[in-house]
C-alpha cells in the first residue's frame, strides 16, 4: 500500500483509474466522474485538470498557465499545488 501522495513542482499528475473528465451534454458542463461522486470543476480547475495528462510536470503545467493567462508564476504554482494536493487527498488525482 502506497503512502500519501505529496504534490510538488516535479510531480507528474494524472487522473487515476476510475476517474474521468468528460463533458456532459444534458447539463452542458464539464464534470469529473469518480466512484459515487461527481465534481463540477470551476473554470480554473478545469484548465488545470485538462493539463494533467501524465506527461507534463506541475512545473510545466504552471509555466503554460502563466503564459496563457498572463499571470504571475509563483501565485499560480501555489494555487495549483494546493488544488492538486486537495484532489489527491480525495483520490481523484494521482502522480
Amino acid at each position: 500500500m502506497a503512502g500519501r501522495i505529496t504534490i510538488s513542482e516535479e510531480s507528474v499528475p494524472r487522473l487515476p483509474p476510475g476517474v474521468k473528465l468528460r463533458h456532459d451534454k444534458a447539463r452542458d458542463q464539464w464534470l469529473v466522474q469518480a466512484p459515487e461522486r461527481v465534481f463540477v470543476p470551476d473554470p480554473i480547475a478545469l484548465e488545470v485538470i485538462r493539463r494533467c495528462n501524465g506527461e507534463a510536470s506541475v512545473g510545466a503545467i504552471v509555466d503554460d498557465l502563466a503564459k496563457t493567462f498572463q499571470a504571475p508564476r509563483e501565485v499560480i504554482l501555489g494555487d495549483v499545488t494546493e488544488m492538486l494536493q486537495d484532489l489527491a487527498d480525495k483520490a481523484v488525482m494521482t502522480a
Binding site: 444534458a26 447539463r27 464534470l31 469529473v32 461522486r37 461527481v38 465534481f39 463540477v40 470543476p41 470551476d42 480547475a45 488544488m83 484532489l87
Partner: peptide
C-alpha cells in the same frame, strides 16, 4: 471544485 450534490440539478445523478 464542488460536488454536484450541493448544487441542485434537475437531472438525476
Amino acid at each position: 471544485m464542488s460536488e454536484t450534490g450541493r448544487n441542485p440539478i434537475d437531472f438525476p445523478m
